[in-house]
């Protein structure tokens, strides 16, 4: 599971998913990799999903798990959802539990 992290501001970073799918085949790897990248120095992580064109319910669950493992004082925001990915978030109403931005830059500007 290829994820890369870029420090964006003093306390925020962008994690880019360099894969086209977050699905049942990689959900556990995704969650583990997010834990590795969730350095406590960052109060906020923006997950850039721009390259992802498909998630299933396992991938969705892994993204929710990644947010939960940050705890209540840190945030996971989402950016650059493709239409198919956005649809899964809306269908399951999980769009209501994340801050979702058009681009990583828009997320960081907030």
């Amino acid at each position: 599971m290829n994820l890369s992290r870029h420090e964006a501001t003093a306390d925020a970073c962008v994690v880019s998913v360099n894969e086209t799918r977050i699905d049942a085949a990689v959900a556990i790897q995704f969650k583990d990799r997010m834990r590795d990248l969730s350095d406590e120095a960052f109060a906020r992580i923006v997950l850039d999903l721009g390259q992802v064109d498909f998630i299933d319910s396992s991938g969705l669950g892994a993204i929710v798990a990644a947010m939960k493992q940050l705890g209540p004082d840190r945030r996971l925001d989402l950016a650059a959802l493709n239409p198919n990915v956005d649809k899964v978030f809306r269908l399951t109403r999980m769009d209501s539990v994340f801050h979702i931005f058009e681009t990583p830059e828009a997320a960081l500007a907030q």
């Binding site: 299933d56 396992s58 947010m67 209540p72 899964v88 269908l91 399951t92 109403r93």
Partner: peptide
């Protein structure tokens, strides 16, 4: 559909699959 209206620690990480299929 598992409800998202709950505290962070209780958010569902599964149980979406058949709900999506039925929708």
């Amino acid at each position: 559909l598992p409800s998202p209206d709950c505290p962070l620690r209780d958010l569902p990480e599964g149980g979406f699959g058949w709900a999506i299929v039925n929708m």
